[in-house]
Amino acid sequence: MSSLHCFFNSSIGRKWIVSITGLALIGFITVHLLGNLSIFLGPDAVNGYAANLHHLGKLLWIARLGLIAAAVLHIYFTMLLWRENRQAHPQKYAVKQTLETTLYARTMRLSGLVVFGFVLFHLAQFTWEWVNPESKEWMDAAGRHDVYRMLVSGFSNPWVAGFYLLSVGFLALHLSHGIASLFQTLGLTSEKLRPRFECAGKIVAWTFFLGYASIPVSVFLKLLSN
């Protein structure tokens, strides 16, 4: 068996793939959030941002394929590790003790599943535009796709906004364990650094929540309107 094959078949190698792909996905949500926040600069800014993104052409597709690969690997290897973990621990204790383990850590699969379900809905709503097909026709004065109007009208639906808030909440839960955990898996922590990574991870996770939640909340408060 080659050394590389050995590495990807080992528990640590597989965990490395989960953490590296997790890091790539965090990179994506950072860029995505910064792009989204341009909505606060007005319709012109966010419509221009969206148009520029689509003008990237091949580059956009390379990024998209990379992102899909990262998501697929992240989920596939997590499921593989989960299956092994269940086999390794077939019988639970009669007296259940959580022993240090945080709520975030214990709910990683649930939070991951909610986020995955949300991503599919989010793509259907704003990328494929299946939820409100008429929004495909909306153009602004400059002849660009009116992303601003699409977002504001999308989030005007309380069910859509509510599901969005719930999902970014679950994303923050996922990252509250995930960020610190990936640094531990990459071997970048020490006894002194680990509590700091854990604290910083939670701050970053809930900063993502505030950033993402600010858009539907602003629509609800009529700070953003058509």
Binding site: K15, Q87, A88, T185
Partner: peptide
């Protein structure tokens, strides 16, 4: 360790 069938670390710290 892997051959003995132990699980993978999820950084639970139990």
């Amino acid at each position: 360790m892997d051959e003995e069938g132990f699980g993978n670390c999820s950084n639970y710290y139990a």
